[in-house]
Every structure is written in C-alpha cells, then in structure tokens.
Amino acid sequence: MGRTWTLIRRRLLQAIPVILIVSIGIFGLLELAGGDAVDAYLAVTGGGDPAFAERLRQQWGLDAGLWVRFLAYVESLVTLDFGWSVVMSKPVSVAILERLPNTALMMGAAIAFSACLGTLLGGIAALRKGTAADAGITVGALVLNAMPSFWIGLIAIVVFAVKLAWFPLGGIASFDRPDLAIGRVLDVAWHLVLPVTVLGLAYMALYVRLMRSAMIETAASDWVRAARARGLPRLRIVRRHMARPALLPVVTMLGLQAGNLLGGSVVVETVFAIPGLGSLAYDAVSQRDLPLIAGILLVGTLMVIVVNLLVDITYARLDPRVTDDRVRAGGA
C-alpha cells in the first residue's frame, strides 16, 4: 500500500508545524495568565516567605528571562519532560501516562459507539424517509444531543447504578481486581458501559444527520438506478451502493469530532469519577498546575493528530478518487 505510506508521511510532516504552533500558543497563554508553578506550589503547601519563593524559582529555572524560559520549555518538549506536577506530586509525563489509557479507551469506545449506532440509525432513517421511524430517530437523536451530558450521566447513575445496580457507580476498575486477565478486562468494560453510552449518545445526532442526508443522496444516484436495473438484491444495493459511498462524510466527521470528544470527556470523567485525562485536566485547571495543563494540551493535540491520521487512511481506503491533498475537501 504505497499510497497509505505516502499519506502517513505527508500527514506526519504536516503535524510538525501544528505541534509547534500549539506549543508556542500554550507557552504564550501561560505567560499571559501570569503566576507560575511556584505560586501554585505555595498556594497548595500553605505559603512561604518571598525569599523562599525566590529560591524555589531559581531552583526551577523560573527566574530567567522570557527567551531562556522559552528555550527551556522547548527543550522539555523535545525530551518529553514536561516538568513536575504539584497537584499529582509526580512528573507531569508520569501523571499523564497513567491516565492516558483510560481516556483513550473511553474515547475510542465512545467514538466507535456513537459513529456505529448513529450511522446505522441514520441509514435506517434515510431508507424510511418521511415515515414515523425517520422522525423518531431524527428527533430522538437531537434531544439526546441537546441534553447536557453531565445531566444524562447523573440520571444514568441514579437509574442503572443506584436503583437497578446493574453497573458500578463510577471508577474504571474494582478495588478488588479479579486475578485473571480476562476478568480484569471484563471488569473495566463493565465500568465503561455507562460513561461510554452517555458520551456516545450525546454525539450520535451528528452521525445520524450526516448519514441520513448522505444516504438520501446516494439512494437517488444514477448508479443505484443502474444497480437496480442489473437486478441486484435490495440488501446488496443498500449496503454497497447506498451506504458505502455515504460513509465518506461520516468518516470526515470522526476526525473533526475527536477534539470535541476530549472536551466532553472532562465532564463525563468527572461525573463517573474515572481517572482519565479529562478529570486530570479538570484538577490541573482548578488548581492552576500550569506544567500539567501544558502537558495535557499537548498530549490532547497529539491524540487529535493521530485520530485524524487514522481517519485520512480510512478515507483514502473508502474513496479511491482521493490520492493527495484533495482528501476530504469534498466531504461534509
């Protein structure tokens, strides 16, 4: 697959300026915000005299001029050493790496869930255009989309965790972890059901709407009429000639959504007490842990870049007309 490798190389090269701009932006924002890790540290530890603060600043290299600090910042990025997190009392990179798998798992599952279900329902709505089923699906998805996810999350906890006790109240795993690996996997999956469902349902409307309109269009295409004239079975026409070409805008949207989902995970992780990047970001922001914020933002950027790369590869596989930068230009 030479085409795929070309695409990967091109996208990775394009990612370099993106990461540069984001990191400069983060540095600039932190400068403008004022206050530094020493202030945050002193606020947490209960203060100290100015001389002690000055000593700490010297120790942590925070007393130098803007340029020196910027270079130190760039160096820390290149060496992937984001500094010390006061909130977590450990290196930022360690704090992030501990949390990253939980969020990646939850986000991945939520994206997959909302895209799959949304696409399926959107396709059904398109095939049943103008019927009660169509209206039900479209309106239902919009209502779910309009309700705040923390509220759906709380309702879900009350109903399915407290009243019915089908699912745990929160967290990512039980305290007394099962011994077998398979047991641990199932345990995590069991913990993820509610948060993934809540996050996924909230974002489903988008996929419903995209798939519905794209499939109404492909259903009216000349190639579908030709496929009918060739006597192909209806199910085959729906799958290969209507649904498949209609997936293109859905895949495009997956990439655009990746960033939004990270934002949504902040709320859902907090509601379900999941130790992930979202709740870490919440702690970092509320306690002004600047190095941690910077690290999370950068890792978030990297995640969005990686997801988009996967999306581009998928898109190129689905649409043979795409070979170069016209990728996704014609999408949504």
């Binding site: 295409s221 000349d222 190639w223 009429r225 030709a226 496929a227 009918r228 004239a229 060739r230 006597g231 192909l232 290969r240 000639h241 498949r244 070409p245 293109l248 689905l318 649409d319 043979p320 007309r321």
Partner: peptide
C-alpha cells in the same frame, strides 16, 4: 431485471458506483 432485460443509460459515469 438484469437477467431478462439489461439497461444502458445515457451518462456512462453516473451508472457506475465511484467507490467500487
């Protein structure tokens, strides 16, 4: 359809699915 009667349309591009 197809088996007894085959049909050819005016727009040759349009009668083919672009992604297959």
């Amino acid at each position: 359809r197809g088996r007894r009667i085959g049909m050819i349309f005016q727009d040759p591009g349009g009668s083919l699915n672009p992604v297959l």
